[in-house]
Design a protein around this nucleic acid. Structure first.
Lengths: 141, 141
DNA sequence: AGCAGGTGCTTGATTCGCTCAAGGGAACAT
DNA sequence: ATGTTCCCTTGAGCGAATCAAGCACCTGCT
């Protein structure tokens, strides 16, 4: 159910454009993940463990329950994409790292997720700068 | 697991900015839905049935299996947010419509989904026009 | 040292979202 | 009317998510 929200009846042009852009981004991201046999959850986790991370850190960054991470990491580990190491400083904690084959798979995934590169390449250098500035400014609260 | 992709190591500024914007949009959308007791799937469907739609149309628009829609509509119907009517022109088909209380709930949801309005209001009128144009241009393929 | 309480993770139960396979009933084409 | 196609539903099964409970370990206090 990739489609977030149909734009409100009274939506302005910009709002409509934001929606379309976000939807396209989401769709492209999901498609790239599934092309590599990754669920969105797996791709999220795999992306974060490029540098060593604990379960708790993952749970916090991905805004979900720790037990959810346990489950996902277990599946990634079963596929040998990820490795769970003891933390010598705190024996309750586990450090998650990508295995070489996890690195490879994630690399391929990133490469096939062309959307951001393609979007940027549709713009001139000056426009890219502008676009980045506007994206940031729109976020400011 | 709202967080789509951590930006690639070699990501440029624009790409990073796109990611942040999309992430914020997604997060805001999910939060607004959950504030109103809606899952993302329910919010998607509820949003589309402002105008009468068949199950098949919903499945196509939301890019998922028809049986998934059956299930979701059943839950929405149990909450009386939606109503399933026979289609006089084709008795195999069902027409889905929001009930008045479905209209109310969706209205409140849309109101609480401030993100696009807030984003627009961070920009001047000229910037909004520019932003919309860039969003579109970035999507062109 | 010893205990109380907090932390980090796992397990189990449960729900929802999603897909696939199978099937029923209705439309349609010949 | 008969066979095919179409729309939807049902059932089975898995992944994702949450919550409640529990275990192992750390920390702070006395």
């Amino acid at each position: 159910m990739a489609v977030p929200a149909v734009p409100a009846s009274g939506a302005t042009d910009v709002e409509q454009a934001m929606f379309e852009f976000v939807d396209a981004y989401n769709q492209a991201w999901e498609a790239a993940a599934s092309e590599h046999g990754l669920s969105t959850a797996h791709a999220c986790v795999l992306g974060r463990v490029e540098t060593r991370r604990s379960m708790g850190e993952l749970a916090e960054e991905l805004r979900c329950d720790a037990s959810n991470i346990t489950q996902i990491v277990a599946r990634l580990e079963a596929r040998e994409l990820v490795h769970r190491e003891p933390n010598p400083e705190d024996r309750r904690s586990r450090q998650i790292v990508r295995t070489p084959s996890g690195d490879d798979l994630y690399g391929e995934f990133e490469e096939s997720f062309e959307f951001p590169r393609a979007a940027a390449s549709n713009l001139t250098v000056a426009e890219r700068k502008q676009f980045a500035a506007l994206l940031h400014k729109a976020l400011r609260r």
